[in-house]
């Protein structure tokens, strides 16, 4: 029953695009396509004539998509962001999850909602994974910098690793800065002096 809906996903990360496609396929939609960048957006909309376009809320190409709806009336394919004013909670959920949906040719609301709900669930998962990944990466980078700073101190002052760390921590506390900031400053200074 859902196979007649044509869904276009704009996503440049192939893994993420595949996951979204899988989720939609599981939901019963099969007429799906993906493009990586909005460079080809205008052409794709003309040739493929999708009913719904799903795009990451943070994708800068969204502004281009908005324009197609507002200015390019000549193409006769009105593209509009899907907002259901009777159901603000869903639009709110979409924004929080980081997905936006655009509807071509003013499709019926009840046909879009299940697509968007599926997308919200999937995008919400990405957003959570991404922030965890970012935090983990940052922690790892910070630790490397702190290790290098400790190494510099151990060599320069002939102290133990614990003493080196305590020195970094004390300096940070005295100056009201973070340990990582003091360590970064030390590493940068050492690089300059080499």
């Amino acid at each position: 029953m859902q196979t007649d809906l044509k869904i276009l996903v704009v996503e440049d990360d192939p893994q993420k695009a595949r996951d979204i496609i899988d989720a939609l396929t599981d939901g019963g939609w099969t007429n799906l396509s993906v493009i990586g960048s909005a460079g080809a957006l205008e052409r794709t909309i003309t040739t493929q004539d999708p009913d719904i376009i799903l795009i990451d809320l943070a994708n800068p190409d969204r502004d281009t998509l908005e324009h197609l709806g507002l200015v390019s009336n000549a193409r006769n394919r009105p593209v509009a962001m899907f907002v259901d004013r009777t159901d603000d909670a869903m639009t709110q959920a979409a924004i929080s999850a980081g997905v936006s949906a655009y509807v071509v040719n003013g499709l019926m609301k009840d046909r879009i909602k299940p697509v968007l709900e599926t997308a919200i669930a999937r995008f919400g998962m990405f957003a959570k994974m991404q922030s965890e990944l970012d935090a983990a990466k940052q922690a790892l980078t910070d630790r490397k910098t702190i290790d290098r700073a400790k190494g510099l101190l151990i060599r320069a002052r002939n102290i133990s690793e614990d003493e080196a760390y305590n020195l970094l921590r004390k300096t940070a506390m005295d100056q009201g800065r973070k340990v990582i900031d003091v360590a970064t400053a030390l590493v940068t200074a050492a690089e300059l002096l080499q």
């Binding site: 809320l57 943070a58 994708n59 800068p60 190409d61 969204r62 502004d63 998509l65 908005e66 962001m81 639009t91 709110q92 924004i95 929080s96 936006s100």
Partner: peptide
């Protein structure tokens, strides 16, 4: 914000 559209949406919804 990554785009004017995203900025608009987040303002409209009070983020």
């Amino acid at each position: 914000q990554p785009s004017w559209s995203a900025l608009r949406d987040r303002l409209a919804f009070g983020h």
